[in-house]
Computed example of a mutant assay.
Amino acid sequence: MHAGFFLLAGCEKPPAQPLILPAGAEPSSFMFNERGTDYFHKGNYSEAVIAFLQAKAADPHAGEIHFNIALCRHMMGQKNKVRDSLKLAKKYARENPEILQSPFYLQYMQGEG
């Protein structure tokens, strides 16, 4: 069973950790975000992104969720989709420094205005 975990987790260390939603977040988006975070920490990025997409469906205006989707896409090797998710994270960041000052965010968004 442990070998499967290592296959799912891969060799790359995540460049960031998933963000939690702020207090007062829509309850189902909070639940799905927590589920995605649990999957992420287990190295199951495909299930994590599904949970984060469910969180986004419940609250499409939470920058943290878009950040988490970008993080999963990065870990899954879908680098071409990361920047789009990070643009939405910025749009809905509400000046959250965990998003806007994250080295992961800055790495992808260098040169973006």
Rank of each mutant, 00 (worst) to 15 (best):
V49H: 08
D59H: 14
R94D: 03
K56I: 10
L86H: 04
P97D: 07
I69Y: 07
V49F: 14
Y39A: 11
A93N: 01
R35G: 05
Y92E: 00
S85H: 11
R73W: 10
P60D: 09
K56Y: 15
S46D: 11
A57C: 08
N80M: 12
E64I: 12
H66G: 05
R35T: 03
K91N: 04
A70K: 02
L71Q: 04
S46M: 05
A51F: 02
I69S: 04
A57L: 11
A89S: 02
A57G: 12
H74C: 03
E64Q: 12
H61W: 09
H74E: 01
Q54L: 01
E64L: 10
A62K: 15
A89E: 07
R73D: 03
F52T: 02
V82T: 02
E98S: 06
V49K: 06
K81W: 15
K91Y: 07
L71S: 08
L53W: 01
R83W: 11
F40L: 00
A93W: 14
E98G: 07
Q54P: 00
F67I: 06
L88D: 05
A58D: 08
K79L: 15
P60A: 08
A89T: 14
A55F: 05
H61N: 13
Q78I: 09
M75V: 09
K87I: 14
N80I: 10
T37K: 15
N44M: 07
E95D: 09
K42R: 12
H41F: 15
N44P: 14
L53S: 04
S85F: 12
R73P: 00
F52V: 00
V82F: 14
G36S: 07
K90S: 01
F40W: 10
A51C: 04
I69A: 06
E47F: 10
H66C: 04
K91R: 12
G77I: 03
K56A: 05
V82M: 15
